[in-house]
Design a protein around this nucleic acid. Structure first.
Lengths: 128, 128, 128, 128
DNA sequence: GTGGTCTAGACCACG
DNA sequence: GTGGTCTAGACCACA
């Protein structure tokens, strides 16, 4: 899987990396157990500071998406499932914005369904 | 409507204010045409600097949620309608996170529906 | 001629009034020598402070568009013609913005021609 | 490129800076991709506060003229193309002022052509 | 009274 | 090093 970053975006590089890995896991490009490139390798490939990659990996590990082993590097973890989703706040904010624009419930639901399928099938990106 | 801020949050104060106004418009606590407190008044009530409130109001005005009048302060604008694709990126990221947790499409849809209704009925908040 | 103001605009009220009088003179709705309403009368009609109208009239007088007589009120002056136009700076800024967007000279000229005819035939407005 | 400001002008400093950058892009002194001075550097050079420069850069970024990079400062963006109707209001007001002075259509067009070429060739300035 | 502008200085996040 | 945020206080324009 090829990660791409936009150095001109207002979004921090480490967040871009984190989001792209999440998208990769969601659409299956990154399977459970699969190894991620080493911090220094990925940093070299992208031409960025390895501290930035390290920060992205730390964020992903903290949220349970990957497991970091000091000797074997980082690897994708299996779906954790259970815990209360952290993103309901964001989702509610999206819903509030839709409501402000007068979007009906079913229209919002259709939009959500479209986003789910796009994330599932790949090709998704997130430019905040 | 009472706005609350968390000075210990990593999210900037002006973004917290902006989001709370959006939630307020969504659930009807802030009706179209209703006046918002003056920047200095709200700043005094919240114990923060008026520049911070001013920045939040400027962001809300920029996105079409409120209209700032030089002599009567800020007021909520009627629903504008346009600009739907603004938050689809965020929504897709939420969907990807759901997929990573193994959430099925219908479960995600139900979650979205719940968020929409929470935003509609009030009590919503967003702590990024 | 009916003047209209938008109290929600970011543009100061007195500038709106000034611009509308300029448009009125340009398209002939206001002929040379024609009397303008008194400051207090116009303020009452528009529901605004008479100081605001007074400021607009002062600006128009200062730029040579109207003549203010303490006893007979304000009246439109005949075209002054000669003096070097004050608005070349604004015009050049418009041209620079067009250049930034890659607009060719002839396209810009056509745009200017359209604006001239709109100002001449009436129906023009200026929302900065 | 040397930016100059007039602290005695009624026009806000940040607007003066914004307009000068637009002029610089228009006449080619600022090429696409070229880096602008950092906010603190430019502020020091001009003897003003860095917040003022920051506001000018934010306005330019908002309108698509420059891109602000968190670690490399600001850089000029390539021509975006869209958003022509942005300045037609201003242009129409200029045309109305010309009409008030009795300027004929072709004379106005020649004036516009001169402004376009001045903006194109440099030496342009705007003192509102 | 309102918001807008400018200054000054502190602290933080990013890289 | 960069820009972003927040605070504090001054002054001005508008109405």
């Amino acid at each position: 899987m090829i990660l791409q970053i936009d150095t001109h975006s207002a979004q921090p590089l480490y967040e871009q990396l984190r989001d792209q890995v999440v998208f990769g896991i969601a659409d299956g490009r990154l399977a459970a157990g699969e190894a991620l490139p080493s911090v220094r390798r990925l940093a070299a490939d992208l031409g960025i500071n390895f501290h930035t990659v390290s920060k992205a990996y730390a964020a992903l590990a903290e949220e349970g998406y990957i497991a970091v082993d000091r000797r074997r590097g980082a690897a994708v973890r299996a779906a954790t499932g259970g815990d209360v989703p952290k993103f309901v706040g964001q989702l509610t904010l999206c819903a509030a914005q839709a409501l402000c624009r007068g979007m009906a419930e079913e229209d919002f639901i259709e939009l959500c369904r479209g986003c789910y399928r796009q994330a599932q099938e790949g090709g998704a990106s997130c430019k905040k």
